[in-house]
Design a protein around this nucleic acid. Structure first.
Length: 587
DNA sequence: CTACAGACTTGTGTCCATTTCC
DNA sequence: GGAAATGGACACAAGTCTGTAG
């Protein structure tokens, strides 16, 4: 930070009440804006654009109906997008093909349109092979060539990858404009295959402060607009053509603007901790309400609290994949079982959530919840809303009344963080080794990931890598017994001779045994951890739901180096927490 | 209330560099 | 030395939530 601040050439405008000019000030030691403004000074170079399309070499041909056909540059470019994806399952899907074909035709000349009338008769395979060869060639490049590319990337990063916001030089998150290509939605997306068009400077709005050096558009082009809105955090934006939504260029998570917000998020969750009992009592009471909308609200909130479900905004039908959250659950997504196995009042959830990830869970609920659900289901079709008198806006308005700043997602943050803290308390044994403590940490993290339904497909190489690890463990075990034998022999030898040399030998062997024991244990911990982690992804919860101060405090308390928990990027993002949290921090 | 724009967070998949393995 | 495994960085899609207009 010192170096960074020293090089600042801020104009006026650094009247943000900070320790401006103090070289080692961290943003979390500074005062915050109270008027809703996000910055006073903002200077950057604008985004990096995708290079213009380079037509294919003459020899690489596209064939229609078996005959080579030279395409116009615009049509060829879009064709290459498809050709690059030939190995992907996407290109076999009807919707993908239909959407692609429709958008491709828009790029064709009228002559091309008249010739190309059937996608099935299009042969992109030569193009596909060309791109494969290209990427192969890239892998085969010499060290020098690779180094050159690396340096060019670093140059681009240093020029465009940073901005100055108030008194800090900050890393920009995504300073590159998204390249054109074919849209790949997740799940069953109705728009998959559509052409994502090329973004030009004329599409881009720049946001910076008036008194900054404005970014220059590439030669011969203009920005759509240059504005100076310090109530928002983005540096540039454009409207994307698939959903018509706005894309932004914003700062890296290590930045003040993101860090402050993140910190604030956890403070809100901590305030929920103080009143969550009251809120729980209230919604249980509301299960008995005379009003349907209140009962629905109370049951939905119970699910959000107990199961960490997302809020579930309404979505425009046909625009996106059919996924739901709590408030948008439909009748077809739950099943009620008055009795199941040993349990009473079991609800089975089965639906596609965010990113079309399946949520499947069977949970026993209170009788009153169960009876309410039966009531909500009465006279409804499978595709009807379960909570027909509720949406996220109603729910959040209610939550706002219960606590300032409370929204549905705060429950996810709160429950995730409190679970981590409880699990850490429960699982950590003070005289465990560091690897054992790390296993406990990962187990606590895992409990959260399971709660939040952060699944992953088991890695393709999972079984094999488990086997490899087991082999290592077996080898280590053999080593250990060998070392133990040697120790025994050394002891016997020492007993016989009683000299210094043999005594030393015993010590050496003892150390060796100890070392191997440690290594073995470490491997065993690793194996357990990996096995338990087969279908669980820890990253998302670690990055977005767990108050980092809990982890930092845990590390300090047990003498675990922070690097064992957070990698470099994560340490940058959580620098505020690493600096602030002491070993007695309580979420 | 509904619809929509806008801003920001959360989430997965993929690419790529580094490490590990043989 | 090269191939395979691994983990981090990045891309960008898909959510949440707020505000505003009608």
């Amino acid at each position: 930070t010192c170096a960074i601040l020293a090089t600042l050439t801020l104009g006026v405008g650094s009247s943000r009440p900070t320790r401006a000019g103090v070289s080692n000030s961290f943003w979390w030691q500074e005062e915050r804006y109270t008027d809703g403004s996000k910055w006073r000074f903002l200077e950057h170079k604008g985004p990096v654009f995708v290079p213009a399309y380079e037509p294919l070499p003459e020899k690489v041909k596209f064939y229609y109906n078996g005959k080579p056909m030279k395409l116009s540059a615009p049509a060829e470019e879009v064709a290459t997008f498809f050709a690059k994806m030939l190995d992907h399952e996407y290109t076999t899907k009807d919707i993908f093909r239909k959407n692609f074909y429709k958008d491709w035709r828009k790029e064709m000349t009228s002559e091309e349109k008249s010739i190309i009338t059937d996608l099935k008769k299009c042969d992109f395979s030569e193009m596909n092979e060309y791109f494969k060869a290209q990427s192969e060639a890239r892998k085969q490049m010499s060290k020098e060539e690779k180094q050159k590319i690396k340096e060019e990337n670093e140059r681009l990063l240093s020029e465009y990858g940073f901005c100055i916001m108030d008194n800090h030089r900050e890393r920009i998150g995504n300073f590159r404009i998204e390249p054109p290509g074919l849209f790949r939605g997740r799940g069953d997306h109705p728009k998959m295959g559509m052409l994502k068009r090329r973004i030009r400077p004329e599409d881009v709005i720049i946001n910076c402060s008036k008194d900054s050096k404005h970014p220059k558009p590439p030669p011969g082009t203009k920005w759509k607009e240059v504005r100076h809105d310090n109530k928002v955090t983005w540096l540039a934006s454009w409207t994307e053509n698939i959903q018509g939504s706005i894309k932004y260029i914003m700062l890296n998570p290590s930045s003040r603007i993101k860090g402050e917000k993140d910190w604030q998020k956890y403070e809100t969750a901590r305030r929920l901790k103080k009143c969550v009992d009251r809120i729980r009592t209230q919604y249980r009471e509301d299960w008995k309400s005379k009003e349907m909308r209140i009962r629905q609200r109370a049951v939905a909130l119970y699910f959000i609290d107990k199961l960490a479900l997302r809020a579930g905004n309404e979505k425009e039908e046909g625009e996106t994949a059919d996924t739901v959250g709590c408030c948008s659950l439909r009748v077809e997504h739950i099943k009620l079982f008055p009795k199941m196995d040993e349990q009473e009042y079991v609800v089975e959830f089965d639906f596609l959530g965010k990113d079309s990830i399946r949520y499947y869970n069977k949970i026993p609920v209170e009788k009153r919840v169960f009876k309410n659900l039966q009531l909500f289901l009465e006279n409804k079709q499978p595709e009807d809303d379960l909570f027909d008198r509720l949406n996220t806006s109603i729910l959040n308005k209610h939550l706002q009344e219960l606590m300032d700043g409370l929204t549905a997602k705060v429950f996810r943050t709160y429950n995730a963080s409190i679970t981590l803290q409880q699990q850490l308390k429960e699982l950590t044994c003070c005289d465990d080794s560091i690897p054992a403590k790390l296993l406990s940490y990962n187990r606590a993290n895992r409990a959260v990931a399971i709660l939040c339904n952060h699944q992953r497909a088991p890695p393709k190489t999972f079984e094999k890598s488990m086997q490899n690890l087991q082999t290592k463990i077996d080898e280590k075990q053999n080593q250990l017994s060998a070392a133990r034998k040697q120790l025994k022999a050394a002891k016997a030898n020492h007993k016989a001779s009683h000299d210094d040399k043999s005594k030393k030998a015993v010590e050496v062997k003892r150390k060796a045994v100890q070392r191997i024991e440690e290594q073995l244990m470490k491997l065993q911990m690793q194996a357990t951890d990996r096995e338990e982690n087969k279908q669980i992804a820890l990253g998302t919860s670690k990055l977005n739901y767990l108050d980092p101060r809990i982890s930092v405090a845990w590390c300090k308390k047990w003498g675990v180096p922070i690097e064992k928990i957070y990698n470099k990027t994560q340490r940058e993002k959580f620098a505020w927490a690493i600096d602030m949290a002491e070993k007695d921090y309580e979420f």
